[in-house]
Amino acid sequence: MFGEKALELIKELERSAEGIPPFNDDGIRQVLEEMRILCQANFDDIENPTTDPPNYSSVRVRHMAISRNKRCILAYLYNRLQKIRQMRWEFGSILPPEIKSLLSEPEVQWFTSYSKALATYMRSIGDNYGLNLATDVTPPKSLYIEVRCLVDYGKLDLEDGEVIFLKKNSQYLLPRAECEGLVRQGVLQHVTS
């Protein structure tokens, strides 16, 4: 049946709804190959009709299969891009290496240029000071929050020049704006008692 390989790609995406599956280079190539064969068969049928008058029904059927394959591939790429865009907001501008290895080369490039565009935009707003849109995702209640460190993170430079050393299982009272990103990345945990 037509479109089996393309469907496989879509199913892969559906199965890993919360993450992203490794980029299936081979799958894409097979779908493109199927489309090429169908397209060639259509050209042959049109150029040398076997019956008189020519019967173009098969051409139409193949054309539908080509359209379907095209839709599946585009949906595969588009939905991956949506996820990669979401990652920029959740992981920050640097992706963990395990995730990066799941992306294809053009996708990594896209991520970098998206990051760049976002940074340029954030610098351009907020009356020349720039505005970091990734902070204060939920409205802040206080300027300082208590956080517990979950991993040995190392040095953290605060805005007032002070340097603190984040150690596993220790607690700190820090300016909210400066540790929000780390909490979102899972380095710190916001302690509410």
Binding site: G19, W89, E98, T138, K141, V183, R184, G186, T192
Partner: peptide, 19 residues
């Protein structure tokens, strides 16, 4: 809790669990 606490991002949390 009245909200306002910062949570680990959903994707990050899932990624950690898998790791």
């Amino acid at each position: 809790e009245g909200g306002g606490s910062i949570e680990t991002s959903e994707m990050v949390a899932n990624h950690k669990k898998r790791k």
